[in-house]
Design a protein around this nucleic acid. Structure first.
Lengths: 360, 360
DNA sequence: ACACAGAATGCAAACGTTTGCATTTAATTT
DNA sequence: AAATTAAATGCAAACGTTTGCATTCTGTGT
């Protein structure tokens, strides 16, 4: 037993013993002392610097493992002036669309050595502003944002830029700002969808959606309008409703609507949100309408429930993960380019998904 | 115009001009020079230290605003030895349950001055291990984790503890570890659910779910078993299926199952996952079965689609946001307690949600 | 006017890296 | 063998805070 203890101790250097006894964390200094070299060399060895001998690198790596060294990226960030962390602000993380975008972003950023701080604005500009502050305080390497519904001014985003932190907007963008962006071609998506409904024989198509002060819903309206005008139909004559993008808000709209228009219902309702489409469907089914026989319904976003419900919902898929990847790639480009001007705009074409709710 | 420029310059100190011209960031040193005091005082003033005069605090705050100062929490973290950041590892962020837990966690952690780094393990122990490494490298103030399905050993979690970083487990926990945890009482949830189905007149109830090597599904099985045994029914005689918790996996199970058992179908199927319940429902509807008339179906988790589908799905709600809040609170306790031993376990009772799919 | 306590501020080191430049060591040429 | 070049490592400062201890103020009681 004594022999074992002796052998055990013999294998350990004084340095190692010291580290194990004290609660202090292991640093590159400790590795340096252990090997009688400098911290500089250790640092370069760990970062695979070309000027360090291969044998030294291996020595350092082994000692690092032996001492159970864990790099301190806070110290590195302080020295380098920026963190290997990227901030991402979304209105709500539990929206399927956004959590998929996040997944896409991570699939590009993690391999590049970055990780994400995720913030929720909860559709409030104040919260968004606070989020920006914590991200700046954390000296993130970049900021990815999809702005809140409330956001109409952009001083907080300009603060990000003034700290030389690259900014990329996605989905809910602001053309006022001169930054890289990734957007969905909502005009094209809703244009295709409306054409499809027209092809199915509809003459009157009502439109409902979120507030058109938001680019998103304005564009989803514009595509719809364009298709109608091309078909020689006056969109002004159609019913439109703008409200909060929830099932309940749509239900509150559709019930009195049915009451008022029971002898004069449209052939189809295009809801620029799947959630609102759900409300519309429930309201219509309550009132005894058959979908799509009596009235066709289409949504937008391809929420996961769209293919689970009955009738399965025709909608537009937005390739959310792809949007995340595109956003992350633009950010990496900006980071690489340092301060050079390379602001780009990527537009993703969405895809029409035809299901039962318009399949007359 | 000249007068204006002169007045403008007059209002600015040399210090301010210097900062505006150069691209360097504003530090507490700059504020200090501006006011002819030391950085120490500025630091204390900004952190509302009791020994600083009120008038000084105001002076400092005003100058900070004037110079457009943004605190550098990386520097603060380095000095303090830990970041105001908390790491959270979940299998998948786009699972509704997890994104709601995240929301709950943030609602407690943000007001306390922390923000979240979110990592996805994607149900892989290797990825989980990498996640742990980046969180340790970032010297997070704590780690919250729901382990992956694959995770059977816990060396990586012990590494977290050896760095004196508090760890709290939630939902998918490991009783082997001596840390704080928050769990759902899955036994009670599935016991209540099974009792309900029995009360509706079922004599035979099949069980399907994820692998019982995971605590979660073992417990959801145990509650089911307990209710059956209490009713004098032998659970061994019932059909059980363990597979991946997806709609498709359940569909692959149910189709041949129907084929084999068409003259001998159970009265009900309890799926320990809402996703699998969806597959079961689709398979049964395909084959012409009516739910709940011919066969009752129940799920587990109360996914958002559960109340949107037809028939609406009976399931068990897990108060996911509440679980997030509970988890975050335990973490804060651990952080406050420094190294004192206060490992606690919180158990949340889930709630049975009865809907059409079992409402015979 | 003096000592004294308490309030307010200053001093200086520390946190763990990274990195430009200087120096040493090894390899190559003359 | 000396001189030259290239390869490898060392030196020291810097990043922006925080904080224990020391020092300087301010006002109070004698």
């Amino acid at each position: 037993m004594q022999t074992f203890a002796f052998n055990f101790l013999y294998l350990l250097s004084i340095q190692m013993l010291y580290i194990i006894m004290s609660k202090k964390q292991v640093t590159i200094q400790d590795i340096a002392k252990e090997l009688n070299i400098t911290a500089s060399t250790v640092s370069r060895a760990l970062n695979d610097h070309p000027k360090i001998k291969q044998s030294t690198k291996e020595l350092v790596q082994n000692t690092a493992k032996k001492l159970n060294y864990q790099p301190n990226s806070i110290a590195a960030s302080l020295r380098k002036g920026r963190a290997t962390t990227v901030g991402m602000i979304v209105p709500r993380i539990n929206r399927h669309f956004f959590s998929n975008v996040i997944t896409g972003v991570e699939s590009v950023l993690n391999p590049a050595g970055y990780n994400l701080i995720i913030c929720q604005s909860e559709e409030s500009i104040e919260k968004e502003n606070e989020n920006i502050n914590t991200l700046i305080a954390n000296r993130v390497g970049g900021v990815l944002i999809s702005i809140s519904i409330e956001t109409k001014t952009f001083a907080h985003l300009e603060r990000v830029l003034s700290h030389h932190i690259p900014l990329v907007m996605f989905d809910r963008i602001a053309d006022e700002l001169d930054v890289s962006m990734v957007e969905n071609d909502d005009v094209s998506g809703s244009y295709d969808l409306t054409k499809h409904i027209l092809a199915k024989g509809a003459k009157t198509i009502a439109w409902i959606g979120g507030p058109r002060s938001s680019n998103i819903y304005q564009n989803r309206y514009n595509g719809y309008k364009k298709a109608l005008e091309e078909a020689g139909i006056n969109p002004k004559a159609m019913t439109c409703f703008e409200g909060s993008i929830t099932l309940d808000s749509a239900l509150d709209f559709i019930r009195p609507f049915i009451e008022k228009n029971k002898n004069n219902m449209p052939d189809a309702i295009f809801s620029a949100s799947d959630y609102m489409a759900m409300g519309v469907i429930q309201g219509l089914q309550e009132a005894g309408y058959k979908i799509p026989e009596d009235i066709m319904i289409a949504g937008y976003s391809n929420e996961p429930f769209a293919e689970l419900i009955s009738p399965k919902l025709t909608t537009v898929d937005q390739f959310s993960e792809e949007m995340g990847r595109a956003t992350a790639k633009l950010l990496l480009e900006e980071i690489e380019a340092k301060n050079e001007y390379i602001h780009k705009k990527t537009t993703l074409k969405p895809k029409l998904i035809i299901r039962e709710s318009t399949d007359k």
